[in-house]
Design a protein around this nucleic acid. Structure first.
Lengths: 220, 220
DNA sequence: CGGGAGCTGACACCGGGCTGACACCTGGTC
DNA sequence: GACCAGGTGTCAGCCCGGTGTCAGCTCCCG
């Protein structure tokens, strides 16, 4: 769970940072909007805690940028203004939530958790389907009691398929969710990875192809 | 954008309902928790606006139920209590957001939009007619419990027919909607595809011909 | 710093099923 | 029974997805 804290008041910024780390988040802290944009460009955060009043690049601008990029990050905007008008404005910019200052630290944590839950829709501690069990925490995958030695990409693909239940997942979607960077649309890597995954999963076939559609898991 | 409003105070419930409809949402209103659970069981909502203080089944219980079912619906909890403790509790239950009463209507709308923006786009969950059920997500088609193995074109044609209800769909329209590109007007491919689809659908006949008109589905 | 092992992704090739054209048949209507 | 819209049988081409392989990369270990 990666969190980026953008807050120019240094004492507050550090305090939020250490507090969130104590709660088990992976936290980066930056002090202005430019730095924030730099970090966002090369790291994928689940939640961005964003002060609205920032020097140089305003919080609103950072927020718009995040939304414009179609980033998966959720934005929790910190705002000094408590009037309804300001609150609505913040949400209108694309923030997912706001928190008026001064705020209670426990509420900040609760809200980050609530946002994060949406970001990765309820990843349960274990994913399973049929005789396949996958534990994202332990990073283990098991089929019919037999432990599978999967490479990182293979593991992520399987995780993504399991998390989608029996829905059909297109190659483009896998590319976006597992390979995250803007990938070459003509890449054949999904095909190759699926193939290797199938080999390791063995019989009976577990990953099925939907022509023109994508992949779907299940015994059927 | 489907929204379910759960609020026992009838005047408020109706007022929220009409207000949201004016904003372009498809709104259903129910007055207690039991009704809410009933609706949730057979309809897929993008957002549930949920009063916390409900008679019979408490809002917290409804919320827990929604989360437990792994539903894709986002929950916006309305709560009379404004203390930090209550707010945190609500989020802890799995609500995605809360709004303390009394609230400004424009803020309710802004929050619903914020919740809905990144919620999974509402794809028609299932199409069905007679004993035929088709699920675009799972990419499955079933007749009388028997799974049909359809090719992409066959699937699209059936999808198009089901989506049109019992209306007659002309060959030209199918050509346009399934084969999208400006196709050769003298092509016989629709005919051929309909034929193969009929074969797979089996008896009794499900796709009927309207002479000089097109095709229509139904048991009749 | 050098080497090896495993992961990754590109490329070439293969096979099967989907597709759509054509020729012919059927059945309803006048 | 003649006409013709629509159904059927069949076949060739092709496109999609699977497979084999190789080279580059990274990471680890000595």
């Amino acid at each position: 769970m990666r969190v980026l804290v953008v807050e120019d008041f240094e004492v507050l910024a550090r305090s939020i940072g250490t507090g969130l780390r104590r709660e088990g988040f992976a936290v980066d802290v930056v002090l202005d909007g430019n730095e924030a944009l730099g970090r966002l460009a090369d790291t994928r955060y689940d939640v961005v805690v964003l002060d609205r009043d920032l020097p140089e690049v305003h919080g609103d601008a950072v927020c718009r940028q995040i939304v414009a990029e179609g980033s998966k990050s959720r934005v929790l905007m910190l705002t000094a203004a408590g009037t309804v008008k300001d609150r609505v404005e913040g949400l209108g910019l694309g923030a997912d939530d706001y928190l008026p200052k001064p705020f209670d630290f426990s509420e900040l944590v609760a809200r980050i958790r609530a946002l994060a839950r949406r970001s990765t829709p309820a990843v349960p501690p274990r994913l399973e389907a049929g005789d396949v069990v996958l534990d994202p925490n332990l990073h283990t995958a098991v089929r019919a009691g037999r432990r599978l030695e999967l490479s990182p990409k293979e593991f992520s693909v399987l995780e993504c398929l399991l998390a989608s239940g029996d829905r059909v997942v297109s190659a483009e979607e896998l590319l976006e969710r597992v390979w995250d960077e803007a990938a070459d649309p003509f890449t054949t890597t999904v095909k190759t990875t699926i193939r290797r995954l199938r080999t390791k999963l063995g019989d009976p076939p577990f990953v099925h192809t939907v022509r023109e559609g994508g992949y779907r898991i299940g015994e059927g």
